[in-house]
Design a protein around this nucleic acid. Structure first.
Lengths: 336, 336
DNA sequence: ATGAAAGCGCTAACAT
DNA sequence: ATGTTAGCGCTTTCAT
């Protein structure tokens, strides 16, 4: 049994031509003025035989496969894979498409090979996603394909992109502290490197909020985006005698390290020190007290990107910014 | 430009028939005794034109697409998505296949619809994965497809499965404590429900190790598999005066809750209480002290499953058990 | 209102 | 050793 029921089988059973069967099964019977009688017979035949069109054959004729590809650098292996893939999945399904997932390991050669394989299979459209916000080159082979960028952008190419609104997020993080009454002793904890776009944008937003309120940042604690690094940095800094009133941690893992250091020095959250953070990963609600964090809306980002990708007609160029929701929890209190 | 360079173009440029071009491009020139001259011309033509076969057309003829599907219940949205998808990706690429990722949300109707869509596109083989170990029904439509089960099994169906060796893991967790010299005050923290297969198997393994050493479990603390639940349970239990020497937590999140409760009662890890756990999630190395945990080898599970799926000839039936590696860290010490 | 036939790009059985 | 030809299952133009 090489193949299942074909259109020819349905037509034969209905006593019509393939053409007639085709039109009714593709909802073009009105347009083609197929008789009600023929319509019924085709529908019945298709139902009885359990007819399903062979999408390879259709694709060969029409060059549409109703498949899209999510090409990521190192996203799929990272901690946020879940929501990103899940969002793409949900949106793709909503549009009647299936999703190929690929990972390039950040290797242009692998990327090229993958794109070729995808194109060989006539994938309809592509999502290019990066784990950290940055600028990317569009693989030449994709130049004439439908394409949306996720978390990255390709300047001057006219390729639409979807990114979290990190600037607003930075603003909101500081605003949470301001709203609680903090004006002094607000420190930033995290990586200063200007090459980390998300960090840079968050800091820009923070500055805006601070300036608007006429408040000065007390300073910055340098560390990498991991609990251990954050613990060591904050620990050493507290040991040196600094007494902060509020910490803006550049992500939840940094916040976790800060929690550990604060605890070690007998400082209580939020009574002695308030903490806000970014990511709203699972960690945020696992920490004690639960951490107020600005969420990265992975699911939203992905669905927006796919909706854009599959929009009809093709969505016009834009750099979309998805808001990052503030998740208020228990790590912020008014200054003592 | 509907289509790219076709085999006919290559043949024309090489001055041969499509057949000849086909044979050399598919490495069957020896077998077909194509002349060296023709071979060279075809290869040159293909190279110059940048020929790539249209896999839709090939698939229509041969019914092979070099694609596989990973169908998960709620895995893709869960925290372990990354390594599972990544492993499948890596292995699929190694076999020259592309990967469709799907999620059923544990809804049989969605599953049926998804399987149909996949079959419509002539996917070569299927991976059925569940987030928690359990028994599953094989969707009827998949009965005659290549299929491997990941983390689940379908008794009496002859469908191969790949699962973590939870029993051995349970044994190993206890053995870590035994090796450190613990014989008294060993408690298990987690969910007792016999319906959680992983928990049941882990406990069976633990019993085996205990029995072999002639050691008795001190008891069990009941809680759900989350930090907050674990914190509350352990906290209440410590408040009641119990003083454990070692804790076997049924996963890292439970361990995190236990850490918090232990800290609250002034009990130090590992000096006062040793802790071992399961999962080896990121958390394990973020906690202080770093947590000794038995890893769930998601990446390994996925690659094994795909290798089995794409084995040639078809792999024979077996219930494969992948070892769960012990990650020794700093949360275990000899009893004081 | 319905059907015959061509053709998408490839593979393979069958000539020569 | 190479070419001719007939499909795979579908869509669509063109006849009737």
């Amino acid at each position: 049994m090489r193949s299942r029921v074909t259109l020819a089988d349905v037509a034969a059973r209905a006593g019509t031509s393939k053409t007639t069967a085709h039109y009714v099964l593709n909802g073009r019977d009105q347009e083609m003025r197929i008789s009600e009688d023929a319509r019924q017979r085709v529908l019945a035949a298709a139902g009885e035989l359990g007819y399903r069109p062979n999408l390879m054959a259709r694709g060969l004729r029409t060059d549409v496969t109703r498949t899209i590809a999510l090409i990521t650098d190192t996203v799929a292996s990272g901690q946020f894979a879940g929501q990103l893939v899940y969002g793409s999945l949900e949106a793709a399904a909503r549009h009647g498409h299936l999703l190929f997932v690929c990972e390039t390991d950040d290797d242009p050669e692998i990327e090229t090979r993958l794109v070729e394989e995808l194109l060989d299979r006539r994938v309809d459209a592509f999502l290019l996603a990066t784990s950290s916000t940055r600028e990317v080159e569009i693989p030449p082979a994709l130049e004439k394909s439908r394409l949306v960028l996720l978390n990255c952008r390709a300047p001057h190419t006219g390729v639409p992109s979807v990114r979290p609104d990190e600037v607003q997020a930075g603003h909101d993080a500081v605003q949470v502290l301001l709203d609680a009454g903090h004006r002094d002793g607000i420190w930033v904890v995290g990586e200063a490197g200007e090459h980390v776009v998300a960090g840079r944008e968050r800091r820009a937003g923070m500055r805006r909020a601070l300036t608007a309120a006429g408040v000065e940042l007390a300073g910055r604690v340098e560390c990498h985006w991991w609990p251990e690094s954050a613990f060591e940095a904050v620990d050493a800094w507290l040991a040196a005698g600094t007494r902060p009133r509020a910490l803006v941690c550049l992500n939840d893992r940094v916040a976790m390290g800060a929690y550990q250091a604060l605890a070690r020095h007998g400082l209580r959250i939020p009574d002695d020190v308030s903490v806000v953070s970014f990511d709203d990963s699972d960690l945020a609600s696992w920490l004690q007290p639960q951490l107020t964090s600005i969420a990265i809306p992975h699911y939203e980002l992905a669905t927006r990107a796919v909706d854009l990708l599959l929009a009809d007609p093709v969505a016009e160029f834009a750099e979309h910014r998805v808001p990052m929701p503030v998740r208020l929890r228990d790590s912020v209190a008014p200054p003592a």
